[in-house]
Design a protein around this nucleic acid. Structure first.
Length: 850
RNA sequence: GCCGGAGUGGCGGAACUGGCAGACGCGCACGACUCAAACUCGUGUACCCGCAAGGGUAUGAGGGUUCAAGUCCCUCCUUCGGCACCA
């Protein structure tokens, strides 16, 4: 028996599988399809342990599905546009394209070392013109559908990355850039947006999706649907008049959004956001100076200062008044920076008695507090003296026709009331914003739009796609797109009038590229359309999608939006692109901190593969933590999986009979029966765990089975039919986890030999078809073999475990109960008393109560 | 503040309809092999009392439901994510 040397067998089999096209996924209508997808990597230049942690269990799962008769496609590619390559260009003067393709080449090798079942023919690279041509094409489709638009607005800008960011890419309390952690600033810029909000409601529907609740909750919170009403308040024109003459033109209606229309009678003032367009109109000449000063101060403040929730509320009175439409009350109009222009209508009605923010504001500025809901469990409230706002649950008071009803009923009644009276209507608001996709950078897909002085913005004609990136560009960190500084690139002919025009010089957010990569994998070189409809009809939707949870509110919302928008254009079909989603956790450094170069706690998978082999690294990554949780790395733990694979090698191949082993002829039936029982029990567990993505217990079950088999081998099982069956099934279960050693042992034990007819067909050893273990079916559980013939029943007395009795599987309840009561230990703890009650749970437990 | 996840030996974790807590592995201890060490193999390993048999205590804390709770319910604590003046 030779030694287990993964460094020899792994490259050998990788080359063989590649040469045989073993993992090619082609349309085959005779088999059910399974599209397995893992989030495509960014070509940073090195595959890190996180990639391995995400990808190897996904590969194992795909292999399991393959062995279960599915025609499985597992594609791979690169999300290869993006900032790091461009920043390196600025720093080191290396062209982003050159650097990116070098990195891709390096990572291809690293990916191959995993021994995963990628179909490399389907590789897609998003920075390749044959890919981004279609990214641009999709932009145009969205534009023509009215789902892409250009707007001047205050947007988040990362001063370090020198580009604008989508709202989803701004994180944390200090509002920092998702990529470089620099706090963002606000800039007024004309930018392109996608109308994600048009699909807000549909994105909240997860029907038929096998996604983790965690992700659904994150998305639901992010979309932030609120149900309420819009109510319009009229501004009083002549502020000194006692007759309250109303301005009748619509421009002097202030519309607010409220989730509590039932509290309308308690609105004692209004607040406009300082940026609200009606501020100037409402403000009286005496208050103009003060209002202007406040507006200027609010504009200067960063969002971070402004949005700090614990900051004391500030604001100024505009001098203007509005009429509360439900009771005719004259209420003052203020401006305050706690009201955001970006949510709702940018204006609120303030109900200090039942909203803490409004309450603090009212007390600070001496505004009336008017109670309209009396909570049932509190003494009668007095607006003038109450120390804090009270929750808006209870019975309506001081609320006209609603008085006396419960607040819950009043919610609907109020909407009906304002609708009938004509000054409001039911309304729904979302926190979700439209997706800002413009980036002032070079290394991205150019936005295929042309601006003409006469004809405005128009898309580049389809025949002229792709709009190629120029290669001769100077990279300077200016905050402007390098494309803008290029001497000629932006010059273009207007597609409408043919006159002189200019290209859009911004490029697209790379999340645009990754919103449809699963479609490009279907046919990466197809040049008639973004994908070949034949491939689409067979493979889509994605059956299993795996990746990190950090994309819950970014990629996973974008790609769902994209699919739905395309569906409405007739390009895709079905409600969702990815039916099943599973998230892996994160591998932390040995110091329990997030891995980073600066902490020096990064684990390099290349070194591990070199030292232990890919099979051991794969097995360890599946074994060492719950996949969905992740855990800190433990460098000595991998020794356990290395030992396990070596013992597997020895168990299967070592036929040395000179040891103390019992000869096969003397092997007892009992040994064989136990071997088969344990084998099929483990098979059952492993099958279940693969279905449920519980990879850690798959490996531990295999370890247990190895221990059982080693015992059986010592007892003479080696060489018996039961032994051969056990080896056969063991290797098949091992194949998805550690594909190389499984294949090698399959081969060495002659299981890959062609049988009968195949063998006769060719005497040439090389041409003989080899029957790879990876083309074998998953074994079937023999339930009879797995069944125990005796069971051990724990016996409790007064809830404490006192004994275990062994009974035949078919023992009756009476037999088991009397055996339990006959036990010495049980008798001892019953202390001679008669049992009050004996509970028997079938096959599980006897519980005696005295 | 709100929403979600997680707290089990020295460590990673297991326990899948409430039914034997600690599977499997790491580490550690002892033994075999060895001149020796490493490797490998074997045995042991939650904690406390006990030579042992045995007994007691344990799943973040405290209550509850139950014959029986890591698992269900209530009140907290710690920790990790996300959101955060969202009207």
């Amino acid at each position: 028996m030779s030694d287990y040397i993964p460094q020899e067998i792994e490259p050998k089999w990788q080359a063989k599988w590649d040469a045989d096209g073993l993992y090619h996924a082609d349309i085959d209508e005779s088999r059910p399809k399974h599209y397995a997808l893992t989030m495509l990597p960014y070509p940073s230049g090195d595959l890190h342990i996180g990639h391995w942690y995400a990808m190897t269990p996904s590969d194992a799962r795909a292999r399991f599905m393959r062995m279960n008769g599915y025609n499985v496609m597992l594609p791979i590619g690169f999300d290869s546009f993006g900032l790091p390559a461009e920043n390196a260009a600025i720093r080191e003067g290396i062209h982003p394209m050159k650097r990116t393709y070098e990195n891709i080449e390096r990572m291809r090798g690293q990916l191959r070392s995993m021994g995963a079942m990628w179909d490399w023919r389907r590789e897609a690279v998003s920075c390749d013109p044959e890919y981004y041509k279609w990214t641009q094409w999709f932009f145009i489709q969205l534009y023509q559908r009215g789902l892409a638009y250009r707007k001047m607005s205050p947007v988040d800008f990362c001063p370090h990355c020198n580009t604008t960011l989508a709202r989803e890419q701004v994180w944390g309390e200090d509002r920092h850039c998702e990529r470089c952690e620099t706090p963002v600033i606000k800039k007024d810029l004309a930018q392109w947006f996608f109308k994600t909000t048009a699909y807000a409601d549909e994105l909240l529907n997860y029907e038929g999706m096998d996604w983790p609740d965690r992700v659904k909750v994150l998305q639901t919170n992010w979309i932030g649907r609120s149900v309420g009403a819009e109510v319009s308040f009229q501004v009083i024109s002549d502020q000194s008049s006692v007759t309250n003459k109303l301005i009748t033109d619509n421009c002097s209606l202030i519309t607010v959004f409220t989730t509590r229309p039932d509290t309308l009678w308690g609105a004692t003032f209004m607040v406009l956001s300082p940026e609200h367009p009606l501020v100037d109109k409402v403000t009286t000449p005496e208050h103009k100076a003060e209002v202007e000063a406040y507006k200027a101060q609010a504009a200067r403040q960063s969002d971070i200062d402004r949005e700090a929730a614990d900051k004391e509320k500030t604001g100024v009175f505009t001098g203007g008044y509005a009429i509360n439409p439900v009771n005719g009350g004259k209420i003052p109009v203020w401006i305050a920076d706690y009201v955001l222009m970006t949510y709702g209508t940018g204006a609120i009605m303030a109900v200090p008695a039942h909203d803490q923010r409004d309450f603090e504001f009212a007390r600070k500025y001496g505004i009336e507090v008017r109670v309209v809901i009396q909570p049932d469990d509190m003494d009668a409230l007095d607006g003038a003296t109450m120390p804090a706002s009270v929750p808006a649950h209870g019975t309506m008071v001081n609320s006209g026709p609603l008085t006396g009803t419960s607040a819950d009923e009043a919610f609907h009644a109020a909407i009906k009331y304002v609708t009938e009276k004509g000054f409001g209507k039911g309304s729904i608001n979302y926190k979700l914003r439209d997706w800002l996709i413009s980036r002032q950078r070079y290394w991205g897909a150019p936005i295929p739009m042309i601006h003409c002085e006469k004809c405005g913005w128009n898309p580049v004609p389809e025949a002229e796609l792709p709009v190629l990136l120029p290669e001769d560009v100077a990279w300077k960190p200016t905050g402007e797109s390098p494309l803008k500084l290029h001497p000629t690139w932006k010059q273009a002919k207007c597609p409408v009038c043919g006159g002189e025009a200019e290209r859009e010089t911004d490029t697209m957010d790379t999340f645009m590229c990754s919103s449809w990569y699963h479609l490009r994998y279907l046919s990466p070189h197809y040049d008639q359309a973004p994908f070949d409809p034949k491939e689409y009809n067979y493979w889509m939707p994605v059956d299993t999608y795996t990746g990190g949870i950090e994309h819950a509110n970014m990629h996973l919302i974008y790609t769902r939006f994209f699919h739905k928008a395309l569906r409405d254009m007739g390009i895709t079909e079905g409600p969702e692109p990815m039916m099943q989603l599973r998230n892996q956790g994160m591998v932390l450094g040995e110091d329990h901190e997030k891995m980073s170069k600066s902490r020096g706690n990064v684990v390099a998978p290349d070194e591990l593969v070199e030292r232990y082999g890919a099979d051991a690294v794969r097995a360890y990554l599946m074994f060492f933590a719950r996949w969905d949780m992740g855990a800190p790395w433990n460098s000595s733990g991998i020794d356990g999986t290395v030992r396990w694979l070596r013992r597997t090698w020895t168990m299967v191949l070592d036929s040395d009979d000179s040891s103390r082993r019992t000869p096969a002829a003397n092997c007892s039936d009992e040994t064989k029966r136990i071997l088969r029982r344990r084998l099929h029990q483990m098979l059952k567990r492993v099958t279940r765990d693969f279905k449920q993505f519980e990879f850690n217990t798959i490996v531990s079950s295999l370890m247990e089975l190895l221990n059982e088999m080693t015992k059986a081998k010592e007892a003479g099982a080696y060489g018996t039919p039961e032994w051969n069956e056990a080896v056969d099934i063991y290797l098949r279960m091992l194949a998805p986890v550690s594909p190389h050693i499984a294949e090698e042992l399959w081969y060495r034990t002659g299981r890959g030999e062609p049988s009968g007819k195949d063998k006769a067909a060719s005497s040439n050893d090389k041409a003989r078809p080899y029957k790879s273990i990876h083309n074998q079916p998953w074994p079937a559980v023999d339930e009879d073999a797995a069944r125990e013939d005796e069971i051990v029943i724990p016996v409790q007395v007064n809830g404490k475990l006192r004994d275990r009795i062994t009974v035949a599987l078919d023992a009756t309840e009476e037999q088991i109960q009397s055996a339990a009561l006959a036990s010495d230990a049980v008798k001892k703890f019953m202390e001679g008393k008669a049992p009050k009650k004996v509970i028997y749970v079938k096959g599980k437990m006897v519980s005696v109560v005295v």
